[in-house]
Design a protein around this nucleic acid. Structure first.
Lengths: 404, 404
DNA sequence: TAACTTATATTAGTCACTAAACAAAGTGTG
DNA sequence: CACACTTTGTTTAGTGACTAATATAAGTTA
């Protein structure tokens, strides 16, 4: 039986690093207050991080009546990770440092039509090129995170995609990619990756429970509670796109009826725009990539095109309906909107979702739910994947030079 | 700020007790295998439980070629807890021992019309009477668990109901009940309590993620992952009844549209039965308590009454739709059906839900989701509440006679 | 300059757990 | 029936992550 690693972030070193990232420059005392650990423990943990070079001391703060605080900062470039977003329409690569800054970025053609082995070589090349272009030292690279749409199959110890990218079905991607690149690989659902990325970037309260709604070709969502993603029993939690919003609705490829994705996913909205009569002034919508077309539609809406506005608003209203369901079931404090679908029309979606949450969730009398845009809407999944690789690396022990 | 207790069941003593309860009679070696703790640790933990009287040694097993195992059993009656299910239609009290056996039971009138202080006195009397009737030693009583429908307000450190039982809104029930009874009080959502109860009774795999759908006057659900309930940020997670199954549907009192509860809750089904023409042969449906009426309807359906069957089937079909949404979002391994709504027609609901899950969830290719009936459908919430009280007591340290 | 503050480090524990050796109680074999 | 071998459980002496209490360092204020 495969040994499952405990899914709990109680790891103090990681938590301390999270807090430093979110609040730098900071000091040991502030860490004491944030963590409810004792000064002694913080001294220890910080020393550890200093020795590993993940954190630096950068001078002193003004005294507040006693010894001045020693300021601590993340040593941002002491570690980098690569994030790959393997979408249906396109592939995005980012390199992110310890702070979650995107230090390199590259967009590639989609791989839906390629052979698995070709995909591996293609990705390995792209990663190698990115590392070279940035002049990164390979020894400082934590690993590669790959984010992809679900449903995923985790059996056999490694995640394998089982649906969207059909030719990858049953292929042990992580294994092959690890062999091809020599770097540790983490694979996760795109929405989950995006959700973890927001935490890393500090968009969300560290103690909050929140969901990230990820709008790309499909509609997904990821949940984070206390800094730990909720993945469900097979890493397929949060499939918002296949929540039914109409029990008498049309049948979906997934087998369900009235799925949100059938009425509110970008391809549907874009198609509606393409079908519009010329008089609507939507002629300019691109025939190519869905993400680009969605983006154009959003821009038209922002410019005041009524037809575009109506299409987006209808989509936003339906998505809001799904978000209300999500909140009634998960009872989160915050919802983050992420993914390429939001790049040009986030405001419309934000407003619709916020309005729905303020008037239609069951627990709205107990607490409000805030809707916020992602700190990095377009690259949320890729960046999130990179942060997953960082997190994975940081969770393992310092490996004090395998001495004896 | 209120200190929040860590929501993680990593407490080994509790886990060991869980395993003994589920697999008794068992032995230390088996515990070693189940927990992946070392023999040394198990020796320690079991000694602890023996000293506290929660567990007994009961002879030996057959040898398997070496020293025979010393068999361990729960000391069932060394601890008892009271569970109260504060429903809209009725109040149920149970007393449960360490094994989750119901050792006493009492059903009371509903309290929706009473004054808060009167409710407290009423409950305190009922609890005292139950304890006396059973001849229980007060010192062995772990506490009282109260399960009630949401939404709940946890602010101020104590849960207070904010909706269904309107006269309890804003009333610090836990505080008052503790004063009146002298016993520690735990309050939780009815569906969450029911879910924890199933775990306690061993209906579910200890490692599985599962949801309990609780059908009473409303429709709720509770989620348990690795033995720990998921409550969301304000203990209002799992409100399945207010998941919208029709975005164009009628407006619900909760503010949302097309809520599942509007079309599939027992009061709705019962009302439909009452409106049926006399020719349908449904004349016998009681005018009183919704739960009784629902039960009668189920019995008529089981006897083959077509009209009753149709009403229940329609309800089951709609509930199944909500359950598919629940599973697509939470990605659980198992769904347990609990609550008074299922008592007489569980089979119809089970079949509808299982069929829907087998054909309509997104991750069905990755793993199947089993639907099972509760081990104690009618008393699931009350029993669950009792187990919450037990769990709460057991999680605190032995309290070695406040010396010094 | 002494007295107070505030920030950090050290020391000596505690707690939950483990590794390794040991003891106890059976079975099988020559 | 003595001896090896299994299997189960215990003991002893740790380890790692944390804390409480005390010490030290580096400022400010009276």
């Amino acid at each position: 039986m495969i040994k499952v690693k405990a899914p709990l972030r109680q790891d103090s070193r990681g938590r301390v690093l999270d807090i430093i990232r979110a609040t730098e420059p900071t000091s040991r005392i502030e860490l004491v207050r944030e963590t409810s650990l004792t000064p002694a423990s913080i001294t220890h943990l910080v020393r550890d991080l200093l020795v590993q070079g993940l954190v630096r001391e950068v001078g002193q703060a003004e005294s507040t009546g006693g010894k001045p605080r020693t300021l601590l900062r993340l040593n941002r470039d002491s570690m980098t990770a690569i994030g790959v977003q393997l979408g249906a329409a396109s592939v995005a690569l980012v390199a992110a440092n310890l702070a979650g800054d995107i230090v390199g970025r590259q967009v590639l053609r989609g791989v839906a039509d390629l052979d698995p082995q070709v995909i591996v070589a293609f990705l390995a090349d792209a990663v190698a090129e990115l590392i070279d272009n940035l002049g990164l030292d390979r020894s400082t690279i934590a690993g590669i995170g790959v984010a992809m749409p679900g449903p995923l199959d985790i059996s056999g110890g490694y995640l394998r995609n089982v649906s969207y990218l059909e030719n990858l079905s049953g292929f042990a991607l992580a294994d092959e990619l690890e062999t091809a690149t020599g770097l540790p690989i983490v694979i996760d659902n795109d929405a989950t990756a995006a959700a973890v990325g927001e935490y890393w970037l500090g968009t969300t309260d560290r103690h909050a429970a929140y969901a990230t709604v990820y709008l790309a070709t499909g509609i997904g969502s990821g949940l984070v509670v206390n800094g730990m993603p909720y993945r469900g029993s097979s890493s397929n939690a949060g499939e918002l796109g296949h929540v039914s919003v109409d029990f008498r609705g049309a049948e979906c490829t997934c087998g369900n009826r009235g799925c949100l994705e059938l009425v509110a996913a970008p391809p549907v909205l874009v198609e509606r725009a393409r079908q519009a009569p010329p008089s609507a002034g939507l002629g300019e919508i691109s025939r190519g990539n869905v993400e680009d077309a969605m983006s154009q539609l959003g821009i038209l809406a922002a410019r005041g095109n009524e037809a575009a506005l109506t299409i987006i608003r209808d989509g936003a209203e339906l998505l809001a309906c799904g978000i209300v369901t999500l909140v009634n079931l998960f009872d989160v404090d915050m919802v983050v909107l992420a993914g390429p679908g939001f790049t040009s029309c986030a405001a419309i979606y934000l407003e619709a979702a916020q309005k729905a949450l303020d008037s239609r969730t069951l627990a709205r009398g107990v607490h409000t739910v805030r809707v916020v845009p992602s700190a990095s809407p377009r690259d949320a999944a890729a960046l999130g994947a990179a942060t997953l690789a960082l997190q994975d690396k940081l969770e393992r022990k310092p490996v004090a030079a395998a001495k004896k």
